[in-house]
């Protein structure tokens, strides 16, 4: 396990989580007007939507470190270790987002933790099929897409987009949880797309 931990370069992951926590605290509940395709041409979205990408990038860089070929043929439970690491990362992201919400007195910042879970799950699912590069791009593309079509003309977030939903929205929490669980589930099967990395 020590070798696995060294190979995963935990410092990269820690940097991703730190950037996420710092940006969540710095941005707080700040809203920005971005172009939208929903009626009015512009929609006001929380700048916080973009922040979970930091922890997502840290996790993917971390999971892609190490000797992949040796891990595939090895007898150690690498996939289980990776799942534990990912789950721990998710919990840390949720915790740091909650802390940021308290520090900035911006309840909306709690949603950054849920969004981090959703984006990590999405990136891991895509990674299993097409590799980490595409996984990260899809996560970034999803955030951009949410700013464009994730809200209706009355600025109500669409449920399927997840990221714009209120922190306590049950559907949002359920979707993010399912996506993260799916990401954890496919972690051991990420060999197919590795040639595309």
């Amino acid at each position: 396990m020590t070798l696995w931990l060294k190979a995963r370069r935990p410092a990269v992951l820690a940097a991703g989580i730190l950037v996420f926590a710092a940006l969540s605290t710095a941005v707080g509940g700040r809203l920005v007007g971005l172009p939208s395709l929903s009626g009015t041409g512009t929609t006001t979205v929380p700048l916080l939507l973009f922040v979970p990408l930091a922890v997502c990038a840290g996790l993917l860089l971390c999971l892609d470190s190490g000797a992949q070929a040796a891990e595939i043929t090895g007898a150690r439970h690498i996939a289980t270790y990776d799942r534990c690491l990912t789950a721990l990362t998710g919990a840390t992201a949720v915790g740091s987002a909650a802390l940021a919400a308290v520090l900035r007195d911006a309840p909306v910042a709690v949603a950054a933790g849920r969004n981090a879970l959703f984006l990590m799950g999405l990136a891991l699912c895509v990674r299993a099929a097409w590799g980490s590069g595409v996984g990260m791009l899809v996560a970034a593309g999803w955030v951009v897409m949410v700013t464009l079509v994730g809200y209706d003309a009355y600025r109500t977030p669409r449920v399927w987009a997840v990221l714009g939903l209120a922190p306590g929205d049950v559907a949002g929490i359920a979707l993010a949880g399912c996506c993260f669980a799916a990401g954890l589930g496919v972690l051991g099967r990420s060999t197919a797309g590795r040639r595309l990395r």
Binding site: A57, L61, D64, G133, A140, R197
Partner: peptide, 15 residues
């Protein structure tokens, strides 16, 4: 890194 660059430039350029 290839994993990071396209996503990073996509988001930063968009912003």
């Amino acid at each position: 890194p290839r994993l990071l660059a396209p996503a990073l430039i996509l988001v930063l350029d968009y912003l």
